[in-house]
Design a protein around this nucleic acid. Sequence first.
DNA 1: GTATATCCCTAGTGACACTAGGCGTATAGT
DNA 2: ACTATACGCCTAGTGTCACTAGGGATATAC
Lengths: 114, 114
Amino acid sequence: MNSPEKRSAPSFTNGVPLLLILKLLAQKEMYGYEIVKSIHQATGEALSFPEGSIYPVLHSMELDGLVKNAERTVQGRKRLYYSLSTRGRNKLESLTTEWRKVSSGVNLALGWGA
Amino acid sequence: MNSPEKRSAPSFTNGVPLLLILKLLAQKEMYGYEIVKSIHQATGEALSFPEGSIYPVLHSMELDGLVKNAERTVQGRKRLYYSLSTRGRNKLESLTTEWRKVSSGVNLALGWGA
DNA sequence: GTATATCCCTAGTGACACTAGGCGTATAGT
DNA sequence: ACTATACGCCTAGTGTCACTAGGGATATAC
């Protein structure tokens, strides 16, 4: 039937996990759990994504050739370190541009100077 | 099976139509087609949403009590003018706050000064 | 007359974040 | 010794969202 539903609390975070992961990995290689924690502090505690959001993105990024991973064992714990490929770097650049466009467009409409 | 898919081109626009519609209607009442055109120019040509995105949002906003509409005929054409309710104004405020949080959080992570 | 702009609508699709778990290992507390 | 908490990884399923790809109808411009 598809009658209209309520738009109660949209999240504004579509595509943001991917963008932030790309940005973090551009600075240094990281493993998943570390990325989860880093996003929170890199955004000044503003944003936080659960593991269930981050890991699937990491896997699809790998499929897409944006990252490659290397297993490493530290203190008895296995970690999958991810690092950016050239493709990943290009993606970061294009997504950053896109983010700026959307972000400044919305801010303009909201009456903020860019 | 649900194997990981590619994240090729996320849009960064989740929730943005709702936010922009609220903002526009806070300034003056408008009809759907007008909103579609206005978003494009209010965002400095950065953003543009098709009618198929806007009308369903309008309908759900009405369900949610954020707007009410009034039919008016102008030059033989029927228009549905939407205006904000108090609830709509509150929603605009909370969503704006949320947008600022996400927006500045991402920009911080990207290395931009807020 | 016929194209283009105006004005409204919606079923279906695909993409996404997220929930709600599961699994195993190490360390800290008591 | 036991227990809890942090670490570290995983994924099937769900819900929400923008958007596609139409449909329909009326007015103005050429």
